[in-house]
Simulated scan of single mutants.
Amino acid sequence: MTHPPSCVLVAADKFKGSLDGATANAAIARGLQSALPDAEVRVRGVADGGDGTLAVLLDNGFEAVPVDVAGPTLLPRRSVIGHRGDEAFVELAEICGIVQLPGKRLDGMHASTWGLGLAVRAALDLGVRRIHLAIGGSASTDGGLGLLAALGAVATDADGELVTHDAAGLLKVTDVDLSGLDQRLTDVEIIAVTDVRNPLTGPDGAAHVYGPQKGLTPEQILAVDAAMARWSDLLGNDPNVPGTGAAGGVGAGILSGLQGRLTPGAPFVLDAVGFDRALAGAELVVTGEGSWDEQSLHGKAPAEVLRRAHAAGVPTAIVAGRVASREGLDLLGVSSVSALIDLADGDASRAMGEAEALLERAGAELGRELAQKRP
């Protein structure tokens, strides 16, 4: 009896510190194809709204449009946004994210989202009706002050003087006038694609949770958190709404300042790349990321891959740089979990340095296992 060819879907995220998502997925796919030469191997890159999200969409129908913006320290920067039909896609990390800091030097009080506002202006120039803003990976904790100011908002201190468009300015702002916002925004839907669900203020808020990784001291964290509460009042924002603390409070700036809405990143990206269509007919789905740990099932793109595949009754396999936790995987029908560090005999530096070759090897092993299971 002749059986139809196997169909495998590869949908991994980036392996941070080693490989971007496209390279990682291609390596896994090559390994699978070597073991299953007659199989159809489909690839759909995934992301969760942080850095690398734009790259995934540019591989799936969006066109790259060059834009002149500003980085997190306001230095001029040439970047790109995505454009498809009547929608645009802007990735904060690509514009003014932490990866864009000069010399990778943290500047928690002075990093700004001004450049993000310039990118939104560039998107408006394209005449689109919908702008998605992926806001993960930010360098700043300015509550979206820079974003709003670049779009025409005016923020002043108690003396009526303009404040700087950063966390330092947020400490001083006592009034914000949104009447000067770009009028084109009234005809455009603004959607923040978030990779976290933190509120704006409090112990789980933007300053307390993410301030340390952006360079804020303990004293600055307390001051910025208090400033976020005042900023929230000025915007008429509810600081407890999940996602408003994303990107150092940019979520709040979009939700209340731009009258936008928030949406989780991973489901948005999977829908945008046509994951559910690619899933149809697959016998196995392979996903993964650099480090699989206790946080991987909370909002990360590979977790959304597992959930959708499980709902469709398709077995899944995980390939990660390292695996620190397997909690919850049995409930999602995961049939195989492998770590590059194990393939590298426990050598972490080798696992990172030879990640591409090891992913190809892991893909080949999964392909052989699938071939053996077929009647």
Rank of each mutant, 00 (worst) to 15 (best):
D51T: 08
A55K: 10
L57Y: 11
L58D: 13
L58C: 13
D59F: 01
D59C: 13
N60G: 02
G61H: 08
G61I: 07
F62Q: 06
F62S: 02
V65C: 04
P66M: 04
P66V: 01
P66K: 02
V67P: 01
V67D: 05
D68K: 03
G71S: 10
G71R: 07
P72F: 02
T73C: 14
T73H: 00
T73N: 11
L74I: 01
L74M: 12
L74V: 00
L75E: 14
P76I: 06
R77K: 14
R77V: 01
R77G: 00
R77M: 06
R78D: 05
R78G: 02
S79P: 03
V80L: 06
I81R: 00
G82N: 10
G82I: 07
H83L: 15
R84Y: 03
D86M: 07
A88N: 04
A88S: 15
F89R: 03
V90K: 00
V90P: 05
V90F: 09
L92T: 03
L92R: 04
E94F: 00
I95V: 15
I95S: 06
C96W: 02
C96Q: 09
G97I: 03
V99S: 14
Q100M: 13
L101A: 05
P102M: 11
P102F: 12
G103T: 10
R105D: 10
G108Q: 12
G108D: 09
G108W: 09
A111T: 11
G115R: 00
A119I: 04
A119Y: 05
V120F: 03
R121G: 01
A123M: 11
D125K: 06
D125E: 15
L126Y: 09
G127S: 10
G127W: 13
R129F: 07
H132M: 12
L133I: 15
A134R: 02
A134S: 14
I135F: 12
I135R: 03
G136E: 12
G136K: 05
S138W: 08
S140M: 06
D142Q: 12
G146E: 08
G146A: 13
G146D: 09
L147C: 14
L148F: 08
L148D: 13
A149M: 15
A150K: 07
L151Q: 13
A153P: 07
V154Q: 14
A155F: 03
A155T: 08
T156S: 13
D157P: 02
D157K: 01
A158E: 14
A158C: 05
